[in-house]
Design a protein around this nucleic acid. Structure first.
Lengths: 204, 204
DNA sequence: CCTACCGATCGGTAGG
DNA sequence: CCTACCGATCGGTAGG
């Protein structure tokens, strides 16, 4: 009987190993122990296979990290564009962007931990590419803040500082959020969106 | 002639290697590449000696990490107590605590990066000890916020959420701050102290 | 998917 | 402080 989540199962009942199950196991272990703290043998063991068998699905350990980081940053970008697209008002843009960003970091904790901890382990030129993508995101938030300030909706001394504060407090949700905690991801995200508007001194 | 910073120099002019110079080199490299991404041979090379000579000054690689993390958390605790001691008013306590915490993360970037990235690489029971120390700090900030709320100075739905946001945005200063950037550490710290008071909705 | 195996490097020790 | 060396483990390959 095939597994609903991860595709076909082998006759003995174990889930079939694919590049996606390899990436998922790598994601869990990289998030727990870091890229350099994780051995391929541990990823293989989590999947119930031997280390060399991993190479039927991947090219190298480094490529696993690269794929995880690239996909995560792509998803964040799509999230951001979707969140902002519906609004012209910088107030609603900042609220929506922060809400979605915070929500993502509560619901995709492993991805956030790996990106934040291990991106620097990527070789050039990927490292530069990934850093530029993050910088673009920071600039996009900064632009929203600047526009709100120009319209007199926000009152903030340094838009860059505020955008760093907003992004980094949201990223850090991945460090402490628990699914079985007192607050849902949505509740945290709504509160953080309010925090963001307070940081830029929004006065309704 | 002896070096003013790190003690005596050897006759050939190189700085003498001590446990402190070993820790400093380890701090730089751990911050750059992570604990598991740094080889003892690299620390030795930075000091101009061979790997086995490191063992004249230390017991193990793990002990280097442990010392760095313990000292850093101790320093943060002292900072916090000093910052809060002079004030009875929760407003001034939160402002001072955030200012000092932000300042430390701008001026001690390496320490912050290592603690945040590699504490989880410590063995038990040190790992639990270090985690408890961080939790105590979070609780102390939370208590200040709760007291301010009880006095009607702050208006915040969830004190724990606000304390996480304030601490984590401050910690992340270590991720982006540059000494040669447009803002001094003091300017950043003052702004972040204001951010903290806005997050808890302080109304003068 | 496996067993068998590779060179390189790791943290650390012996002995001076 | 060094050279010489250790067992263990790493990511990865050969070959089936």
């Amino acid at each position: 009987m095939p597994s609903a989540d991860l595709g076909a199962a082998t006759p003995d009942g174990r889930a079939a190993v694919t590049i996606e199950t390899v990436l998922d196991a790598a994601l869990t272990l990289f998030a727990e122990r870091g890229y350099h703290g994780t051995a391929l043998s541990e990823i293989a063991e989590a999947l119930g296979i031997r280390t060399p068998s991993l190479y039927n699905h991947m090219q190298s350990k480094q490529q696993l990290l690269e794929t995880i980081v690239r996909r995560t940053l792509d998803d964040v970008l799509v999230d951001f564009e979707t969140a902002v697209a519906g609004f012209d008002d910088p107030v609603e843009q900042l609220r929506s962007a922060t809400r979605v960003y915070a929500l993502r970091h509560a619901t995709h904790r492993r991805e956030a931990l790996v990106v934040n901890r291990d991106t620097t382990s990527l070789p050039e030129p990927q490292l530069t590419t990934m850093r530029e993508r993050r910088r673009d995101h920071e600039r996009a938030i900064r632009t929203i803040i600047t526009q709100g300030a120009e319209r007199g909706q926000f009152n903030v001394g340094n838009a860059g500082l505020a955008s760093f504060a907003i992004l980094e407090m949201s990223v850090s949700i991945a460090r402490w959020f628990r699914e079985d905690g007192p607050l849902t991801a949505e509740q945290v995200a709504d509160e953080y969106a309010d925090f963001a508007l307070r940081i830029v001194r929004y006065r309704p």
